[in-house]
Write a protein that binds this DNA or RNA. Structure first.
Lengths: 202, 202
DNA sequence: TTATAGCTTAGACAAGTGTCTAAATTTAAT
DNA sequence: ATTAAATTTAGACACTTGTCTAAGCTATAA
């Protein structure tokens, strides 16, 4: 990303960022990400190519910014003070809620972009990276019988894989049923219990 | 892939396929996949661009063929008659063996291609897809308390994530230690026990 | 109001991509 | 060894990509 998101954007910059991300979201519902060109993006929002390259490195960079916008909505950054097991369910619920809310948009995008292609992978990967950060913080102070990074990977993968199965592979599942699956996958038990914890700390 | 791999390739075609894949393997040790161009590949193995496009759609297609060549070496396709838990460990061992054997090549490639970039993702993804096929077959006839596809995803993700951690994140781990981690991640117990199975069938 | 610093933009650039044609060459089967 | 079918190849094509320059615009602070 060429534009520095950390500082307060000017009114003009905000307008430009919105225009490009909206154009991308629009185009993703119309065609495959592969076939979208920078020219096409610029035409759609009536900005010159030079401006595009002032803000983004390439279309991958822009789509990444789009994921950043979506992720903000999931409130993945707000970490409540809860036990690891509760956190797991809490974040699962937020993801579930988000995908449920954006069902229509997701379905439209999936029409032109297969689940196994770059686009969807880049989205779920973005979310996975965000969820990893949270788990990394949570596991930092705990006594584990397995390296923390491994557990971080396992938990975020389990969460995202289940979400992906329900919403991207389109296997309608109630939140209750999803919780049952989650507990089986995470802990091989009836309750959600983290693997690798030396003692349960619910 | 434009060339039909299912039929017996002619001597010439075999030579061409080898030349292109070798060129790609060579270049991956010299620079990042992103910066490799089709022109460069063709120059390195002295074939005209037109020939490249006779065989492959693009460089992603070629690198995919490279993964196919590697995967054959792992013998992922030979499925022995074993219980699900034994299969899990068997395939983990094969992957472990393969990566251990190709340590040098992997390290060289990782020097120019970061773990989080497209190239490495495309490789581990290829392996994941291959491992998925095996688990799908294994779980087909079993009684599970969770949809089979979910379990397939979970098991292959756990396997590949552990392998990735050991070899691509470069966390040297003995096979014994790896088995211990695997059992914790898969079953939250001292032994490797699959989650989701209605009854243990060791 | 007016500098001035920072953006925005048009257009050119070198390089890459994937497709196509028609000629040259190779292959496999008689 | 001959021949018909299939493949390979050179070169051209239209198009995309990312960079760069120099001219234009705009916002803010004196």
């Amino acid at each position: 990303m060429k534009y520095d998101l950390s500082r307060q954007p000017t009114k003009g910059a905000q307008r430009t960022l919105s225009a490009f991300s909206s154009a991308m979201f629009d185009l993703l519902e119309l065609e495959s990400f592969e076939t979208i060109s920078v020219n096409e993006i610029c035409e759609r929002c009536d900005y010159p190519r030079a401006t595009f390259y002032n803000y983004f490195d390439d279309k991958y960079d822009l789509v990444n910014y789009c994921w950043y916008l979506l992720a903000t909505e999931i409130r993945v950054d707000e970490a409540p003070q809860l036990s690891p097991n509760e956190i797991l369910v809490t974040y699962f619920d937020r993801l579930y809620q988000f995908f449920d809310h954006h069902k229509r948009q997701m379905k439209a995008i999936l029409k032109h972009n297969q689940v196994d292609e770059t686009l969807v992978a880049s989205f779920t990967n973005y979310l996975k990276q965000t969820v990893r950060k949270i788990f990394r913080q949570i596991f930092a102070g705990l006594q584990l019988n397995i390296p923390a990074e491994l557990l971080v990977t396992q938990c975020s993968a389990t969460l995202l894989n289940l979400i992906e199965w329900i919403f991207l592979q389109d296997e309608p599942t109630t939140l209750e049923e999803a919780h049952r699956y989650l507990s089986i996958l995470i802990g091989n038990s009836k309750k959600v219990v983290m693997p690798g914890l030396v003692q349960s700390i619910d």
